[in-house]
Design a protein around this nucleic acid. Structure first.
Length: 565
RNA sequence: CGGGGCGUAGCGCAGCCUGGUUAGCGCACUGGUCUGGGGGACCAGGGGUCGGAGGUUCAAAUCCUCUCGCCCCGACCA
C-alpha cells in the first residue's frame, strides 16, 4: 500500500479530550476519530488491525469447532421480556419502536436470540453439542463512555454460545474456550491473566475474565504469585493483615476516651496513636428493611457488592439521618450498646478495638467483638494489595487491568425461560445447558497499544500490526524512488504487507509518522546510503538500525518476520 | 445519576476575572522560492454564528439565566 493511497491523518499535537495512552496514540497516529461520546470511526489503519485480531479469533474458534453465523443487532422486545431482561436492564439498553409501534431494542448481547434459535431448531440429544458464534456490533448506552475505544456505546464483540446435554459437556466447551482465549491473546502479543469473576446478572455459577494489565484498565484484580489465585476485586476474598495492637491488647475493660473533633479513622488513629487496624469503622446504611450498621476494620474499605449479596439493596445514610436514627453524628458511631442490625467483616472477630462511643466527641477503647456486641459475620471488605491470599496466605498483588474477554457458565437460565429443550435418550425433555463467551477485538487492540508503546508512538506486535514493513524513501530522486519501488514490489511478491511512504515530505516528518504509526519494521532508503550501497533496516521496538545491501533486504525482512512470529 | 473541568479557525491554546478599535498566537492548510537524514526557512494568502438560546448594557467572547456537547473522578457496567 502506498501512503498517498491510504488515509492516515496523523496529528502533531494531542487532542485535548484524550487521556488514556491508547486513545491519544490512536488519535495522533490517524487510526480513529470520535463521532460522539463512546462512538468512534475506525480509519483504515485501525480497521486493518481489527481485521487481524478478528482473523486470529476466527482461526482459534474454528480450532475448537465453533461455527460462525450472524444474528441481527435489532431485536424485538418479546424475546427479552421472556427472560425478564427487558425489565431487569435499565437505561443501558437502547430501546426504540418500529413503525407499527412495536417495542424493539438494539442488542447488548445475544443470549436471547441465540437461545431462541436453539429452541426452534435443536430437538434431540443427537443435535448436541453446538457451539455458535458471531462477530456483531453491540449497543450499550453506557453511563460513562471513556478512555477512547476502551469503553464505548457501540462495539464489535465476538460472542459465542455453547449448547450441551449436561454439565460435563458444558465443562468441555468452557475449557475449550478458555484455552482458545489463551491462545488468542498469546498470538495477539498481550500480557494477560485469567481471573475468577463475578457472574453477576448473567446468571450461573462459574465465570472467568481475561484481563490485560494496564494502568488504563478500569478493573482491578488481585493475584497470588505463589499459588496462582487470581480474581476480580469484585469478588476476591482475602485474609487481612493481622491487627497491630501494641498498647491496646492489654486493655481489659472498656474505656471512654475524649476525641474532640476527631471523626475519620485517619484523624482518630493519629490522635490516639493507634494503628488503623485497631479501629472499627461503623457505617450506617439504609436497606429495604430499614437502617443497619456495616462494620469493617479501620484499614479496610467496605465492599458494597459483597454486602449487597447479603442484605440486598441499600444506600448510605445521610448526615441528618444518622443523627435522627442513632442520636449521634457520623464519626462517633460504635457497634455497641444498641439493638440495630449489624453486619461485620469476619476479620473483626479477632482483636481488641476502638470504636465510636455513640457520643459526640468520644471513642471507646477495649471493645472485643463477640463480647461487647454481636453481629452477622461475613466477608464484606475489599481485598487489597498485601492482604493474604485466601487460598495459601501469601501476600496478594494488585493490578489494574483491561477486561479483554469473559467466559460464563450460564446453565439453564436462558434455555428454561425460552424453552430451549431437547429429548434425551429416554425421550425425556431436558433444558439445554449453556455457556456464553465474549471477546472485544477493539479492547485487544487498545490493550496492545497500552502495553506496547514508547514516547514516539505505538509498537505493534507483528501479528496484529496494520502492516509488517514500512518503507521510507527519504528523497524523491529517481534512484531512491526506484530502489524503494523495487524493494516494495519484491516484498509484496513474498506476501509481506508493506506500507510505502511515497509522500513528498521531509525526512523528519516521515520518521516521526513511521514511529507514531508503529509498524514493527522500517526500511529506510536515503541518497547517502545508496551511494555506499546500503539501505537501513530498523526494528521499531528497539529502534536499532542495521545497514543492509539492497539485494539482501528481502531476506533480512523475511528472517525478521519469521523470528517474530 | 452525584462531583469537578472545558467549549474561541482543522489541532493545541491566549483573551474572560476588571465589558469598549478590525478577536489573537503556534501548528496545520493554499500559492511561490529555497531546502531535503528526525515534524526546515522565507514571502504571500484563505479560514471564526467565540457551542446554542435568552437576558443585562449605549456596547457582550467577556456579566447573568437556561440549554447542548465533550472530558475527568465516583456510582453503574447483564
Amino acid at each position: 500500500m502506498r501512503f498517498t493511497n491510504i488515509f492516515i491523518p496523523t496529528l502533531r499535537e494531542t487532542p485535548g479530550e484524550a487521556e488514556a495512552i491508547s486513545h491519544i496514540l490512536m488519535l495522533r497516529a490517524g487510526y480513529v476519530r470520535q463521532l460522539a461520546a463512546g462512538l468512534y470511526i475506525y480509519l483504515p489503519l485501525a480497521w486493518r488491525v481489527m481485521d487481524k485480531v478478528k482473523a486470529i479469533i476466527r482461526d482459534e474458534m474454528a480450532e475448537i469447532g465453533a461455527q460462525e453465523m450472524s444474528m441481527p443487532a435489532l431485536h424485538p422486545s418479546e424475546i427479552w421480556q421472556k427472560t425478564g431482561r427487558w425489565d431487569a436492564i435499565g437505561d443501558e439498553m437502547f430501546r426504540l419502536k418500529d413503525r407499527g409501534g412495536r417495542d424493539m431494542c438494539l442488542g447488548m448481547t445475544h443470549e436471547e436470540i441465540i437461545t431462541w434459535l436453539a429452541s426452534m431448531e435443536l430437538r434431540s440429544y443427537r443435535d448436541l453439542p453446538q457451539v455458535w458464534y458471531q462477530m456483531q456490533t453491540k449497543f450499550r448506552d453506557e453511563a460513562r463512555p471513556k478512555s477512547g475505544i476502551l469503553r464505548t456505546r457501540e462495539f464489535i464483540m465476538k460472542d459465542s454460545y455453547s449448547f450441551d446435554r449436561d454439565e460435563e459437556g458444558l465443562e468441555v466447551n468452557y475449557q475449550n474456550h478458555a484455552s482458545a482465549y489463551n491462545r488468542i491473546y498469546q498470538r495477539c502479543g498481550l500480557e494477560f491473566y485469567q481471573v475468577e469473576s463475578d457472574p453477576g446478572m448473567m446468571g450461573g455459577a462459574t465465570a472467568h475474565e481475561f484481563m490485560a494489565p494496564s494502568p488504563a484498565g478500569e478493573d482491578t484484580v488481585v493475584l497470588c504469585e505463589k499459588c496462582g489465585y487470581s480474581a476480580n476485586i469484585e469478588l476476591a476474598g482475602s485474609v487481612p493483615i493481622p491487627q497491630e495492637a501494641e498498647g491496646l491488647a492489654s486493655v481489659t475493660s472498656l474505656q471512654e476516651v475524649a476525641t474532640p473533633e476527631k471523626r475519620t479513622v485517619t484523624e482518630v488513629s493519629g490522635f490516639l496513636k493507634e494503628d488503623r487496624t485497631c479501629f472499627i469503622k461503623s457505617l450506617l446504611l439504609i436497606g429495604s428493611d430499614g437502617p443497619f450498621l456495616a462494620l469493617v476494620r479501620g484499614d479496610q474499605d467496605l465492599h458494597e457488592g459483597k454486602l449487597r449479596c447479603i442484605v440486598g439493596e441499600f444506600r448510605a445514610a445521610q448526615k441528618d439521618e444518622v443523627k435522627d436514627i442513632l442520636g449521634v453524628e457520623a464519626g462517633f458511631i460504635g457497634p455497641q450498646g444498641h439493638e440495630m442490625r449489624r453486619v461485620a467483616d469476619t476479620s473483626l472477630k479477632q482483636g481488641v478495638y476502638i470504636a465510636g462511643a455513640n457520643k459526640a466527641g468520644f471513642h471507646i477503647k477495649g471493645i472485643r467483638p463477640g463480647e461487647h456486641f454481636e453481629a452477622e459475620w461475613h466477608d464484606i471488605h475489599t481485598a487489597v494489595k498485601n492482604d493474604g491470599c485466601p487460598k495459601c496466605g501469601e501476600p496478594l498483588d494488585e493490578k489494574n487491568v483491561i477486561e479483554i474477554g469473559n467466559i460464563f457458565k450460564l446453565g439453564t437460565k436462558y434455555s428454561e425461560s425460552l424453552k430451549a429443550v431437547y429429548l434425551d435418550e429416554h425421550g425425556k425433555e431436558m433444558p439445554m445447558i449453556m455457556g456464553s463467551y465474549g471477546i472485544g477485538p477493539a479492547r485487544i487492540a487498545a490493550a496492545a497499544i497500552e502495553q506496547n508503546h514508547d514516547d514516539s508512538g505505538m509498537i505493534w506486535p507483528l501479528s496484529i500490526a496494520p502492516f509488517h514493513v514500512h518503507i521510507i524513501p527519504l528523497a524523491l530522486d529517481d534512484d531512491v524512488v526506484n530502489m524503494a519501488g523495487s524493494i516494495y514490489n519484491e516484498l509484496k511478491g513474498h506476501r509481506v504487507e508493506v506500507l510505502l511512504d511515497d509522500r513528498d515530505e521531509r525526512a523528519g516528518v516521515k520518521f516521526k509518522d513511521a514511529d507514531l504509526i508503529g509498524i514493527p519494521f522500517q526500511v529506510v532508503i536515503g541518497k547517502k546510503g545508496l551511494k555506499e550501497g546500503v539501505v537501513e533496516f530498523k526494528q521499531r521496538s528497539t529502534m536499532q538500525t542495521e545497514r543492509v545491501e539492497p539485494a539482501q533486504v528481502t531476506v533480512k525482512v523475511l528472517e525478521a518476520l519469521r523470528a517474530f512470529q
